[in-house]
Design a protein around this nucleic acid. Structure first.
Lengths: 139, 139
DNA sequence: CAGCATCCATGACGATACTG
DNA sequence: CAGTATCGTCATGGATGCTG
């Protein structure tokens, strides 16, 4: 457990010599982060929680493509990473709310950089794809 | 074709009401981008090419955990998205070089924001994980 | 309401072998 | 050298049913 899509094979990415620090060391600390961002739901949840705390079923209703399995699973990951806080409010129908922690807010900020870039450049990417596909077909 | 891990099910994520624009519209233009960033190799390749053009086998050697299947596949995606340029240099042993296009450089910039954040906050995330796991075990 | 456990389909990926 | 093609594996994630 605790290992998901990590590198298990002997492979051991050894990239150490690009312009920056030691990002992507063999055990790849940042890799985790990219996996988080890359997965289907984390970012959605993060952005939703950016607007304030929400309860489990509120999140489920807002996203609605998500299964409760993936929701609880993703929330647990986010909680484990210290990005969101889980608070149980006892009551007759019990309720649990999730809120963004400072760490999660920071990540959300970084994520928005990405989505901003995507928003402004997606059209150009789409054009490139269209051109590429046209070439393909011609061949 | 052209749809990979997209939402096919009736689900249709309808998140439209968070603080920003219309990121994550039902067909999710930015989703593609996050998938690119999330996959195992794109970011590595992008960062490597950030240091200048490289040939196929140079990339393969530098990353080395990668299979040539994934390398060529990822490169083709990046090329299709207009992020990298593929140039064939005829010769006895043929050689093909890949270089970052402006669009790819822009994405690389956004990615670095993420990796920067990761580098500075990974320790805190690791602590949070350790705490969480300790709790788990206690229960 | 807020989950966990289980089963099952899909597809991502690695290994291997072959081509221009 | 720079790939393509095929195959097997294993993880990801959806659907369903049950619990406190």
């Amino acid at each position: 457990m605790a290992q998901e899509g990590t590198f298990s094979t002997p492979g051991t990415v050894q990239v150490t010599d690009f312009s920056r620090g030691d990002v992507f060391a063999r055990n790849c600390p940042t890799r985790q982060l990219l996996d988080r961002v890359g997965d289907k739901w984390s970012v959605l949840i993060l952005m939703l929680l950016g607007g304030g705390g929400l309860r489990f079923n509120e999140l489920k209703r807002r996203i609605d493509g998500i299964s409760q399995k993936m929701l609880s699973q993703t929330l647990r990951s986010l909680e484990r990473d210290g990005l969101v806080e889980r608070e149980v409010h006892p009551g007759k129908p019990i309720s649990v709310s999730y809120t963004l922690l400072p760490l999660g807010a920071g990540l959300l900020g970084a994520v928005r950089m990405m989505t901003d870039w995507a928003e402004t450049n997606m059209a150009e990417v789409a054009q490139a794809q269209a051109r590429y596909d046209a070439m393909e077909e011609a061949a």
